[in-house]
Amino acid sequence: MSKWINVVALDQIPLLGSRVVRNGELKIAVFRGSDDQVYAIRDACPHKQGPLSQGIMHGNSVTCPLHNWKIDLTSGKALGVDEGCANLFPVRVAAGQVQLQLTPEPLAE
């Protein structure tokens, strides 16, 4: 079993914004919704690997900064007519700290 790692205090992520967490080559974008819900997704758009962390977040999705694909942060899947899926990572908030596991969840169907 993977273990939970403290990465950053929740209030260090702007509302509707993100931070990038690195582990060697691996980059994970951690988002904070307007309701303080957190999401963690591989920081590479299924389209052409655009950095999703740099996109505009709204509701529980993010619009990729490169070509405007919309990615659902609860499933990792592209919304609308686009098809593709990015890995999600287990994430939670405990005592004001965002915690992450570094092993991705299986891709959504």
Partner: peptide, 17 residues
């Protein structure tokens, strides 16, 4: 958070990030 990344980061994002 309501600005496109270019305006948030004050530079033009390139295809490789």
């Amino acid at each position: 958070q309501s600005r496109f990344i270019n305006e948030r980061a004050h530079g033009n994002i390139q295809k490789d990030g």
